[in-house]
Amino acid sequence: MSIFHGFGTLTLEAIRDAIRRRIVAAIAVLSVLSLMVVDSCSGCSTGDVMVNGQAQELIQFAGYSAAVSFVVLGLWIITLAGVLAADHLTQTLEDGTALLSLTRPVRREIFALARLLGTLGIVALTGLILLGATAFLFATRNGLPLAPAAVAGAACGLGAIAVASLAMTASLFLPRLATWLLVVGAVGIIAIAGGLGLSPIENGGWLAWIGSYGPPLLHAMAVPLALWMEEVTLPTGAFDLWPRLVVWDAIGIASLCIAFRSREIST
């Protein structure tokens, strides 16, 4: 059997399996709620606000508002990828439904990657709708260009791959709740480290190390969105962020394949 045949079959089944689970309905509800918030934010274009005693039109803050909204939603999508991935492989091992597939002539790596892709398929659809609608609303209401959103969306996708693959790997060793907490905590810390790295505040220690060498989840989305914010120059160039994201994707995928290959399966 060709690798692609098995991979395609398992990936389709992994996506169907994700759709059959109730969590997808929960995500849909949360996404709709998120879109309502975005709709409200992007509609704030009339009226005045006082800054340093001077009246400013709210439209002048649209770029900031859009960039912050987009990055926050992007981080939510990345966290979602990790949370779903923490469950999507181990659930089939725990309930025993993976057993028969794993005794077929299918490589372990193919099975794990198909489950990962199944998770990412659902996340990609959610992200496309959520981030796409956000960018569209800000573009139509505030006249912001769409290209930075497309680049930031791609960065979000790469970040989701890294977090999902690492979460899926961790789920092979940790209980589900611990993996979920690890995902939420890690994305939060990486975002804080990234935020500090973008700010003029001097910081050192392990947060600075994470900001410099960890997956640039926040940086990689924020840097292209700087085009939306007038008179803002972010200190990190985009080009060193993308290779770093790709390297973290490769680390995540390789660790998943190695960990799942050496995993013993109970019957």
Binding site: M1, H5, G6, T9, L10, E13, D17, R20, D95, G96, T97, L99, L100, S101, R104, P105, V106, T267
Partner: peptide
């Protein structure tokens, strides 16, 4: 297997088609 666990939401034909695909 001794402890046969089948995916409860799949149909009989759908499950067997999946397994046949994985069998090549």
């Amino acid at each position: 297997p001794e402890r046969l666990v089948l995916p409860s939401r799949m149909t009989v034909a759908g499950f067997l088609a999946l397994q046949a695909s994985l069998a090549g």
